[in-house]
Amino acid sequence: MKLARFRVGSGPVRLGRVDGDHVTDVSAEVGTSLRAILPDLPALRERIEAAAGETLPLAAVTLEAPVDEPQKYLGIGMNYREHAEEARQAGIPIPTSQLWFNKQVSCLNGPYGDLVKPDLSDALDYEIELGVVIGRRCKHVSVEDARSVIAGYLVTNDVSVRDWLQKRSPTFTLGKSFDTHGPIGPWLTTDDEIADPLDLQMTLTVNGEVRQDWRTNDMIYDVYEQIAYLSQVFTLMPGDILATGTPSGIGAPTGRFLKIGDVVRAEISGLGAIENTVVAES
């Protein structure tokens, strides 16, 4: 099942079920908050699948960030083997354990929203990542049980302002949290639709040129290990988003950073694609 948040024109946000190239409004059945229904999603499945609200072509709606008001948006650094090596060559030491940072939730952006290039930097970079959305409140989750707390998956672009990331903020938070720099989507694909999240194709292009092309099976710490690690420290909540690492091909090693007018498309097999245009800061 694929669930999206969307608007028609300037109307209110609705919750919809995506079937092919159409979306069906299910708000009358379950409300408009995806985050609110995540703990009860298994029990609500039949109602959502049977809902017969207004059906619209996806081309006729504006898709919003699928998860509304998550409490946490966390990212792991240098979690793909070749990416860790290219980061080392750029002067960033390879961590000896999982390296986590916060992306402030105010950076969240829709799957087709514009990416704002801040005036204060020319080092705007891209990072395609598999996004994992937590489905229920949990703590001290074992690796073996980790999949049971996953509601589903989405595509993320962990946009980074490199000079602020590496030089201005040792915790990465500032360079990872500029407004609009957290596009996610295009919808939430529930866990049952993905046979193996550890073997998905990831491709990112800039103006049609392939920059990143890898599979999720190259993670150093897989998504289940990540959930087990984090849940030792704090309670994971429904709607929390984990960006699980990016493969090699980012702009930093070569200095090929994003420019105004660039179109960045990130696609993961089975999950769909997001596409964002870089615009100037107004």
Rank of each mutant, 00 (worst) to 15 (best):
residue 1 M to L: 12
residue 4 A to F: 04
residue 5 R to F: 03
residue 13 V to E: 13
residue 15 L to D: 00
residue 18 V to R: 10
residue 19 D to H: 05
residue 21 D to M: 04
residue 25 D to H: 01
residue 34 L to T: 12
residue 36 A to M: 11
residue 36 A to Q: 15
residue 43 A to H: 11
residue 46 E to P: 07
residue 47 R to M: 08
residue 47 R to E: 10
residue 48 I to A: 06
residue 51 A to D: 02
residue 52 A to Q: 09
residue 53 G to V: 04
residue 54 E to T: 05
residue 55 T to L: 00
residue 59 A to K: 13
residue 60 A to C: 04
residue 60 A to Y: 04
residue 61 V to L: 09
residue 63 L to C: 09
residue 66 P to M: 13
residue 71 Q to K: 15
residue 72 K to N: 14
residue 73 Y to A: 10
residue 73 Y to N: 11
residue 73 Y to P: 01
residue 74 L to K: 10
residue 75 G to T: 11
residue 76 I to F: 08
residue 77 G to W: 01
residue 78 M to A: 11
residue 82 E to C: 02
residue 83 H to Y: 06
residue 89 Q to P: 02
residue 90 A to E: 09
residue 92 I to G: 05
residue 94 I to M: 06
residue 99 L to R: 09
residue 100 W to N: 08
residue 100 W to C: 07
residue 100 W to L: 13
residue 101 F to P: 09
residue 101 F to G: 08
residue 102 N to T: 11
residue 102 N to S: 14
residue 104 Q to T: 15
residue 110 G to S: 09
residue 116 V to M: 10
residue 119 D to L: 04
residue 121 S to P: 02
residue 121 S to T: 15
residue 122 D to L: 11
residue 123 A to F: 09
residue 130 L to T: 04
residue 130 L to D: 00
residue 133 V to S: 12
residue 139 K to Q: 15
residue 140 H to K: 14
residue 140 H to N: 15
residue 141 V to A: 14
residue 141 V to D: 14
residue 142 S to L: 13
residue 144 E to F: 09
residue 145 D to G: 12
residue 147 R to P: 03
residue 154 L to E: 12
residue 155 V to E: 00
residue 160 S to T: 15
residue 162 R to C: 08
residue 162 R to T: 10
residue 164 W to L: 13
residue 164 W to F: 14
residue 166 Q to L: 13
residue 169 S to I: 05
residue 170 P to L: 09
residue 173 T to E: 14
residue 173 T to W: 12
residue 174 L to S: 06
residue 174 L to A: 13
residue 175 G to N: 06
residue 177 S to L: 08
residue 177 S to H: 09
residue 179 D to A: 08
residue 181 H to S: 13
residue 185 G to Y: 12
residue 185 G to R: 12
residue 188 L to Y: 12
residue 192 D to Q: 07
residue 194 I to V: 15
residue 197 P to G: 05
residue 197 P to W: 06
residue 198 L to H: 15
residue 199 D to L: 06
residue 200 L to Y: 05
residue 202 M to T: 06
residue 202 M to W: 03
residue 206 V to C: 06
residue 213 D to L: 10
residue 213 D to C: 10
residue 214 W to K: 00
residue 215 R to L: 03
residue 217 N to H: 03
residue 218 D to F: 01
residue 218 D to H: 02
residue 226 Q to V: 04
residue 227 I to R: 04
residue 233 V to W: 09
residue 234 F to P: 01
residue 235 T to M: 08
residue 236 L to Y: 05
residue 237 M to F: 08
residue 238 P to L: 12
residue 238 P to R: 02
residue 244 T to G: 07
residue 247 P to L: 00
residue 249 G to C: 06
residue 258 L to P: 08
residue 260 I to K: 14
residue 261 G to R: 01
residue 263 V to L: 04
residue 263 V to W: 01
residue 264 V to R: 00
residue 265 R to K: 05
residue 265 R to H: 02
residue 266 A to T: 07
residue 267 E to W: 00
residue 267 E to N: 04
residue 268 I to Q: 02
residue 268 I to C: 05
residue 269 S to H: 00
residue 270 G to C: 01
residue 274 I to E: 08
residue 274 I to N: 03
residue 279 V to F: 04
residue 279 V to Q: 03
